[in-house]
Design a protein around this nucleic acid. Structure first.
Lengths: 353, 353
DNA sequence: ATGAAAGCGCTAACAC
DNA sequence: GTGTTAGCGCTTTCAT
């Protein structure tokens, strides 16, 4: 049975109008008494059409509740205008905010973002399957906001469509990236703590494979502290509560006077543990974090560094638009945006002995 | 020029292998020395194929870096297996968390969620365009987690695909919904405040069109307080800072002894203003909020109500899967999940005069 | 087990 | 301006 025959059958079976199955452009065209092409032109809003035709088609579409089949449209026209967004688990407030801002920026630029998320639990397989799915959707470009996808995994697609990494530095120099200036963050925070006179500081350093940005923060903090002549006690951590007990016990014994965390979330854990141990902050021990996106951070008096989420989001969108556009830039874009130090009540001078 | 001819031309021009344009199944089939059909069967992992054929096809696909064109696949097979998610601006921590949990639950159920977000700024038009886009993608089902799309706008699609609203109550009884039990939240919080002996309480009530759930919370709080014989001062608010100044000045003059907010975000604003006005919480005035999803809420001692985000997310996914499945439930699912009261340090007895 | 042929719903040249 | 025709890349009967 040919398509035409089937359509006729459907029509016949329901007394003059197809009911089941989605309404197609063909249905609209017939209802309006014009050809598919004309109907298509009207829906596309391009090409030459009489006002009369336009009106009839719109009316028919409205009457039938027609919705353009994006799938077919994109297949026929060869390629979508939407950009894919590969996102990390948005439970992390920093990623959640980045997600929001990316959407906002895209929206303002009249760009549609299709988001696929990948959980952390399956590093590798699933992440790649999401990547493949997005590629299979033939998106015009790709924004990658997760560390779960490595540069190598992106490599095969790099020359098919523009890819830009957002919110975290790219380790290879071949892929476009807009990221936070983690080193500036670490440097400013470390200098801030050192300038209060602390000489013995514990630093939570996230294991590199767990989170590269966090690793950079921790490692840089330790290095900068050392530059300032501070004795550093690094603690490698993976899980969210790792190392907390350790640094608190050091603080309780007076072996350190400050604790630096790579994220505010970890800072919160440390503050909780400090309170539980009867330690006053910053009377007995100073604490710092990083990210600065938590609502209420000011009320808690958190000492942190506000990452420039909005700026990174805007630049990401601006760049991906240029990249998918007709006059893409030459080299590889590697932008690094600094944020601002947020001094809080959690850092003070070390206790006198 | 026919498709075959074009392909040949492309091939010829590059010395035996097409370079530009995505690799198609046809390319893989040719490389493997089998028919498109066989290659398709292998990629689909269904139907009868020799191990030998399977091996050859996989090898060819790998070699060429083939990625299935989801667009074409879905067009040909008529329908995707993915579910669309229409999301509200995730800047709101409660929505951000819901988003995460929905993704997590979907992921665990091996369901792919395609997310489109809509900003608040354009109520109506854009929201609907996102809805249409998702419908145009011919998703198998739809999860709506934004109030920006009304029931009327969903109506035309209701019988085309299963639609379920998540995280907020549905106003009409025709659409499936899984939501927080806002009334339970308001009732428990109001009772909690009243039980501390407050007799004059200000309640921030969000305007209904701004946020229906917030409106229900506020209105119910006021009603329950009144049941307890409390004198209520309702303040209608829209923007995030609305009413804050007002209630603080009442508190400063001792006209009220407690302030109830419909969200924790508003609670934070009130706490800030109280601090700025030199008011002690809860010494001079008690404050409560709602949502309980803020990291660090415990450290701030926020009095709030934890909405059951995880539970709602899981139920949403479970239900949408049943609905798109072959044995969908009969009636309209309307589930309402209660959370838990979180007593904090921000609510105490009223000051003595 | 494998292949040939007929579309899925739409767009895009190319006539009329 | 409008219609006709030929596909987009894939799945899917239906033969073989």
């Amino acid at each position: 049975m040919s398509g035409e025959e089937r359509r006729r059958a459907r029509k016949a079976a329901t007394g003059g109008r197809p009911t089941h199955g989605p309404i197609t452009l063909e249905d609209v065209a017939r209802e309006a008494g014009v050809s598919r092409t004309s109907a298509s032109r009207v829906m596309l809003g391009q090409g030459k059409v009489t006002d009369e035709t336009r009106r009839k088609v719109w009316a028919a579409a409205e009457r039938l509740g027609y919705v353009t089949n994006v799938i077919a449209r994109e297949l026929a026209s060869g390629g979508s205008s939407t950009v894919g967004l590969l996102l990390r688990d948005a439970a992390n407030p920093a990623y959640g905010l980045l997600f929001t801002r990316l959407q906002k920026a895209a929206h303002e630029a009249d760009l549609t973002l299709v988001t696929l998320t990948v959980s952390d639990d399956d590093r590798g397989r699933k992440q790649v399957s999401s990547l493949h799915r997005l590629m299979g959707m033939r998106v015009a470009g790709l924004v990658v906001a997760t560390g779960g996808v490595t540069s190598e995994q992106l490599e095969p697609f790099r020359r098919r469509i523009p890819i830009i990494r957002s919110g975290r530095p790219e380790t290879t120099a071949a892929i476009h990236a807009v990221s936070y200036d983690e080193e500036d963050a670490a440097r400013r925070l470390a200098t801030h703590v050192a300038s209060h006179g602390h000489r013995d500081v514990a630093v939570l350093v996230t294991a590199e494979p767990v989170s590269y940005p966090e690793y950079v923060r921790g490692a840089t903090m330790a290095a900068v502290l050392a530059e300032h002549g501070v004795r550093v006690r690094p603690v490698e951590v993976s899980g969210p509560l790792d190392g907390v007990e350790q640094v608190i016990s050091w603080a309780a014994r007076g072996e350190i006077t400050a604790i630096m965390c790579p994220t505010d979330t970890r800072q919160l854990h440390v503050l909780r543990a400090a309170a539980a141990a009867g330690l006053d902050v910053p009377g007995d021990v100073s604490v710092s974090g990083c990210d600065g996106v938590l609502p209420g951070a000011d009320l808690l008096g958190l000492t942190t560094y506000r990452i420039p989420v909005e700026e990174v989001a805007q630049r990401t969108i601006r760049n991906i638009i240029r990249l998918v556009g007709d006059s893409p830039p030459d080299g590889v874009l590697q932008e690094r945006v600094p944020g601002t130090l947020v001094p809080g009540r959690t850092v003070g001078p070390p206790p006198r002995r």
